[in-house]
Design a protein around this nucleic acid. Structure first.
Lengths: 112, 112
DNA sequence: TCTCCATATGTAGCCGAACTACATGTAGGT
DNA sequence: ACCTACATGTAGTTCGGCTACATATGGAGA
């Protein structure tokens, strides 16, 4: 997977991962690996800043917890985040429809 | 459509547009509008440099032509470009499969 | 014990592709 | 004369994801 492919779609991935369950950053990375069938292996330097950005935007909220002596910052969707996720899903559908329309299934016939 | 969404997928779009027909830049932009159902309206500042980049990479080749007093640089796929297009189509399928796997159809059930 | 790995979070700085804005010129319609 | 469509192109900005690094705990194994 070329690195730039995710540009503009990362927010949707993070929001979707938090849909239905609050997770901490490291667990989000693992969840993305699993749900993508191993295709997505995001570095921490990508995920953690993105989560802070989403928090600044009010789409997620976080709380600290200590589990087994380890510090965890657990993120959950806010109501604004849920709305944003719905928008992201729609945008994703429109985006893939547009690209699929161009990529089609092969060469286009020369118009008669 | 948020601007960054195209990141990393533009090459595939351009190559696919040239698959089966040689076109000049302006016509490529119009073809992308049509085939995407109006969703893609790429500025010339995006398309022309991208075509030059593809030409530098040997994926397309161009020839000048004069049509109705207007200069046109017509691009066509090279054999390397055809191979690259096949790769791009595969990458696109893998990419959408990965993202769809994460976005799913809604909230994920808590594992029992 | 010491080392290594998995777990867990985070920052600084770079890279580069797509965008904005601009510049240039022809043809045709009003 | 003016505007729009056609047609190509460059300069510079933007900014999000990446690389690389820094930090710290717990557990397994040599």
């Amino acid at each position: 997977m070329k690195p730039d492919a995710l540009r503009g779609h990362l927010d949707a991935l993070l929001l979707a991962t938090l849909d239905g369950a609050a997770l901490h950053g490291y667990a989000i990375i693992e969840a993305l690996q699993q749900r993508s069938g191993g295709a997505l292996d995001l570095p921490t330097g990508t995920v953690y800043p993105a989560l802070r950005r989403l928090e600044r935007g009010g789409l997620v909220a976080s709380e600290w917890a200590t589990v087994g002596g380890r510090q965890r910052r657990t993120y959950r969707l806010t109501s604004a985040g849920r709305k944003a996720l719905a928008g992201e899903r729609t945008a994703w559908r429109e985006f893939t429809t547009a690209i699929d329309g161009v990529l089609g299934g092969g060469p286009w016939p020369t118009p008669a």
